[in-house]
């Protein structure tokens, strides 16, 4: 393979990979505070993209994206208020089923609010023709935006969980929810907040990829599955693992296109995931002792 091609594949892998990483981090935020895997995570990305597109018809782009983030966060909060809080003695099986139900519901509502057309936001800066030549590979400006935004989100979250009261309270919930309650942390609010945060991050990511990946009412599902695969690959709840796992799967996937038919592309991430699950279910960076203690 020529070097330029290889570079091009790796770059597109990095772009997809960083989106998977952000989705996986969205999973991790909710998983850490509640122990729930929110199968509706992909729908947050879709909602973010779709509402940003609608708002961008009336407002300048940055404000449209801001509104999209707000709308998606409200949806995230509503999910917790109306459903997750009302569950009595939820089992893992019940939570899996209910969040799958939610994801279907949000998708179908989106189908009726918008339609089944494929839409996209305009490039944040420049357009398809203003690609940057990078050692013979071409980078569309939006790819830089996606990479930049993902890096920012990861840095922001790292800072947030380490230095702010809210972030530390959320970490306390994740290590022991009863102890967190005893320390005066309002765990219920923290759970709501984790849904809002993960919805907001999803919305930003959804808006950022819309110009290159396009947005459609059902684009969330495959993103959620990849994101979940990445979260498990990196070790559930581990954000560094999510970033590494995301980039790894992104690159492997885009390299696979050069060997296998395009139709099998989606199967690559899943196959890697299954192998990881069979060999080391705690993930690349997860500790098997910890995951053995966790109930699920």
């Amino acid at each position: 393979m020529k070097f330029e091609y290889l570079l091009q594949y790796i770059l597109s892998g990095l772009t997809n990979g960083s989106i998977y990483a952000i989705t996986a981090i969205g999973f991790n935020i909710i998983y850490n505070t509640t122990g729930i895997i929110n199968f509706a995570q992909g729908e947050f990305l879709m909602l973010g993209g779709m509402s940003a597109i609608t708002f961008s018809q009336y407002f300048p782009l940055p404000i449209a994206i801001l509104f999209a983030v707000i709308v998606t966060s409200i949806v995230g909060a509503l999910i917790d208020f109306t459903i997750i809080r009302r569950m009595k003695k939820p089992t893992v099986l019940n939570m899996i089923i209910i969040t799958i139900g939610l994801s279907i519901l949000i998708r179908e509502i989106a189908l009726h609010v918008w339609d089944e057309k494929v839409r996209s936001l305009p490039y944040f800066t420049g357009d398809e023709t203003t690609s940057i030549n990078f050692f013979g590979a071409y980078i569309p400006p939006q790819v830089l935006w996606v990479l930049g935004i993902s890096t920012l989100i990861v840095v922001f979250l790292g800072f947030f969980f380490k230095y702010t009261v809210a972030g530390r309270s959320m970490r306390a919930c994740s290590s022991n929810i009863t102890a967190a309650k005893l320390c005066g942390i309002k765990t219920n609010n923290m759970i709501t907040f984790s849904f809002v945060l993960s919805a907001a991050i999803g919305a930003v990511a959804g808006a950022a990829i819309s110009p290159i990946a396009q947005t459609q009412y059902d684009c969330g599902t495959s993103l959620a599955i990849k994101g979940f695969a990445v979260a498990i690959l990196g070790g559930l709840g581990n954000s560094t693992g999510a970033v590494i796992g995301g980039l790894l799967i992104g690159i492997l996937e885009s390299l696979s296109i050069s060997i296998l038919p395009l139709a099998y592309k989606d199967a690559i991430a899943i196959t890697i995931l299954l192998i990881i699950l069979f060999v080391k279910p705690s993930g690349l960076l997860g500790k098997s002792e910890i995951s053995a203690l966790k109930e699920f």
Binding site: I37, V92, L93, I225, A229, I232, L274, F296
Partner: peptide, 15 residues
């Protein structure tokens, strides 16, 4: 178990 089992069976279906 749990999430892992759900994901693995879902993954098998997708493959």
């Amino acid at each position: 178990k749990g999430h892992y089992l759900a994901m693995a069976t879902l993954g098998f279906g997708i493959i």
